[in-house]
Design a protein around this nucleic acid. Sequence first.
DNA 1: TGTCCGATTGGT
DNA 2: CCAATCGGACAG
Length: 204
Amino acid sequence: MKYAFSRVPRNFYRRHGVLLAPQLLSLVLVHQTPEGTTAGLIVEDEAYIGPEDRACHAFGGKITPRNRAMYGPPGTAYVYFTYGMHYCFNIVAAEEGVPHAVLIRALEPIEGIELMNLRRNNRLPLTTGPARVCQAMGIDLSHNGADLVGGDLYVAFPPPELARPFKVSTSPRIGVDYAGDARNYPWRFFIEGNPYVSRRPRSD
DNA sequence: TGTCCGATTGGT
DNA sequence: CCAATCGGACAG
């Protein structure tokens, strides 16, 4: 399927990360590469708020070589490498200099599914989980600091033929049990009932 | 320079 | 439940 995507403008990202995260749901992440275009609806994400959030790489306003991109202008990509083998992709929110970001955790594929399967080596699930999203979409460290408002990797409004009603649910974020009180903040957002949303219960 | 560990995933 | 796998953060 070939869609006419219209790119989200910079001002869309210029707000508090916890407000931006739910607003990104049902929008489209697009990546155009020489191998082809891949795209998917954002169905799950998480907000990370540097100054006040123990789970955030920029907690307390900390700046390191790795997290520097979080301090960039709204609409910047923050990509980091973790566990010695995985990439995670974030969208920088808020004003430049304020380290807010939204981690993209799951997509519903809508274009380039064959290419995604190729990149994923036909493993399933295809685009559920932040590292799987990066692999399927061809996102790696070369995209760290990239401008989503002017490059091959960007967010677009959903094409009209894909518009559907949806409900937003929240939960604590995944994999941040080390973060003290922040582990309980309800800053994970997802489209209720969408089959591409990850399920990972926390016993507690 | 040395140690510790992770915003995960995939296989047991 | 646990191993894989290694760059980054931080202490010394």
